[in-house]
């Protein structure tokens, strides 16, 4: 018992070590939130362009560029992308690491969101497009008022899953010396040489965040599903 108390004291209290976890948690949430935002915006744009090309054959060049983007991002590990952006793209500038992390994870997430949303758009039956057109809506209006709201609802579970994956993936941000949650735990581990408490504590914090996100999404899904009852 005394041992456990000592370890607890050593891990969290000495030198205010718990602050590494709270700062880390803050940074992890910050990175996740903004890269998710960026990923969603980017993903929707890419998905719309790709779906437009699939359906109408327009936007050929843009579609081609986005296809390269998807291939590169989905074909390489996120850690490598992170390091490339930090050490190569922003090689000779002193740039905020959090910004680099948001950019890297946002670009990465955008590619996955794009394919999720595209599959959502393609899953909406042709009749919905035709109904929109036959009322005099342009392609863009049909997309915005009729297709995207339905597609979004259909892919919400997949998007939520992507958000959860993203949250966990940000744990590699430590590679560019970002003090995220994982790094906070690593730091404590490197000064106390105790693996158990910092690691378990970090794991539990991630788990709680994921559970909160899952709960929020279930609530949102239920609200959206109201339309389908009958």
């Amino acid at each position: 018992m005394q041992d456990l108390l000592d370890t607890l004291y050593n891990t969290f209290i000495v030198d205010d070590r718990w602050k590494f976890l709270t700062t880390g948690l803050g940074n992890t949430l910050l990175i996740t939130f903004f890269s998710l935002l960026m990923g969603m915006v980017l993903g929707f744009i890419v998905a719309i362009v790709r779906a437009t090309y699939d359906k109408t054959g327009k936007l050929k060049i843009l579609n081609f560029l986005f296809k390269i983007y998807l291939t590169v991002i989905r074909g390489t590990p996120v850690v490598v992308q992170l390091l490339i952006i930090y050490f190569v793209v922003f090689g000779s500038v002193n740039i905020d690491k959090l910004f680099v992390a948001v950019l890297a994870f946002g670009l990465n997430s955008g590619a996955y969101v794009a394919e999720i949303v595209r599959s959502g758009i393609m899953s909406i039956e042709k009749g919905q497009f035709e109904a929109g057109s036959s009322l005099g809506f342009s392609y863009a209006q049909t997309m915005i008022y009729i297709i995207l709201p339905q597609a979004f609802k259909n892919v919400l579970p997949a998007l939520a899953n992507e958000a959860i994956v993203l949250l966990k993936e940000t744990s590699v941000a430590g590679y560019i010396a970002v003090n995220d949650l994982t790094k906070g735990g690593d730091y404590i581990r490197s000064v106390t040489y105790q693996a158990f408490l910092p690691l378990i504590c970090v794991a539990i914090i991630y788990l709680i965040m994921v559970m909160i996100m899952t709960w929020l999404v279930t609530k949102l899904e239920r609200r959206l599903a109201k339309n389908d009852k009958g």
Binding site: Y175, A177, K183, Y187
Partner: peptide
């Protein structure tokens, strides 16, 4: 705190 000494040195080179 970098995961590798070499990464820290790289970061030094890049300012």
């Amino acid at each position: 705190r970098y995961n590798k000494g070499a990464d820290a040195v790289q970061a030094l080179k890049q300012g």
